[in-house]
């Protein structure tokens, strides 16, 4: 039954997404501007790291290109999240104007409806940029990744974007009680800025926060540490998977609880 249901969603998803892209593509300049802006934002961060390293050879044991790799990992995860999970930003609006009703009338999970309804193509800008700087970093570090590590990399990126997504969903769920939550969502988004740099350079308290409270560090620092062969402790390779699983579980449960509190709107 569950497998059948999953298959139903897998078949349905591309169809929904292609419809969403179809309607988004009617605004073509919007799309190109978005891709450009997204890549430019990441590019500015790159310049920032470069500028800092003009004065110092390394930071808490991290060299320039190692930091660039972490930065690229974060850009890929964030970009994937932006691209695939843009729908989470619409939850507040749906709740406020009562259009969440129609999602509840459909024979599909509401979370699926939210995700399938909207993708933000410009997230691809971030992903491509991240991928490019990661490859440059690997070349400069003279590292060749084994097939196993490349597979791990892909899994880690998926896990990373799921972590961002889960945190976003937890924030969005609050809109079932509080009407306008977009500012708190932006705030949490800003926390993700920290993951663009290795958490080793931060204060201990912030490290704990980014590992156990809002586990953004598992999207970049931990898997990068493992991929670059800098760390061997299991938390660096199993951590991202466990963190993603935990985050998704918490988000899904909280979402389910929140939708039960939905009050609808108007007549």
């Amino acid at each position: 039954m569950a497998v059948k249901r999953l298959w139903f969603y897998i078949k349905l998803y591309p169809y929904f997404v292609s419809r969403s892209i179809q309607s988004r593509m009617s605004y073509k300049s919007d799309f190109f501007l978005g891709v450009g802006a997204s890549a430019l934002m990441q590019g500015l961060g790159y310049v920032f790291i470069w500028a800092v390293f003009q004065g110092i050879p390394e930071m808490n044991g991290w060299s320039f290109y190692q930091m660039v790799f972490v930065y690229g990992m974060a850009a890929i995860s964030l970009g994937l999240n932006e691209f695939l999970f843009a729908g989470s930003w619409n939850v507040g609006k749906h709740v406020r104007d009562g259009s969440f009703d129609r999602l509840l009338l459909r024979p599909m999970g509401t979370l699926f409806s939210i995700l399938a309804e909207d993708v933000a193509l410009h997230g691809i800008g971030s992903v491509l940029f991240g991928l490019a700087v990661c490859i440059v970093a690997l070349c400069r570090l003279h590292l060749a990744l084994s097939l196993g590590k490349i597979l791990f990399w892909i899994v880690a990126m998926a896990c990373g974007s799921l972590i961002f997504f889960s945190v976003n969903i937890v924030c969005a769920t609050v809109s079932f009680w509080v009407t306008d939550i977009s500012s708190s969502m932006v705030m949490v988004q800003n926390v993700s800025e920290f993951t663009k740099y290795p958490i080793a350079i931060y204060d201990r308290k912030l490290q704990v926060f980014l590992t156990y409270v809002i586990p953004f560090a598992f999207s970049s620092y931990y898997p990068a540490g493992f991929l670059l062969g800098m760390e061997s402790s299991p938390i660096y390779w199993i951590g991202p998977i466990l963190a993603a699983a935990a985050a998704v579980t918490v988000a899904a449960l909280f979402w389910r609880y929140g939708t039960g509190k939905y009050q609808s709107a108007g007549g």
């Binding site: 309607s23 009617s26 259009s99 009703d101 009338l105 024979p107 108007g266």
Partner: peptide
């Protein structure tokens, strides 16, 4: 049993659309 129920029912709300605006 929302999802199963959704298969059994149809609903029209005169004030709100159930359709896809851009399609």
């Amino acid at each position: 049993r929302r999802i199963q129920n959704a298969m059994n029912i149809g609903a029209v709300f005169g004030q709100k659309t159930q359709l896809w605006w851009d399609l």
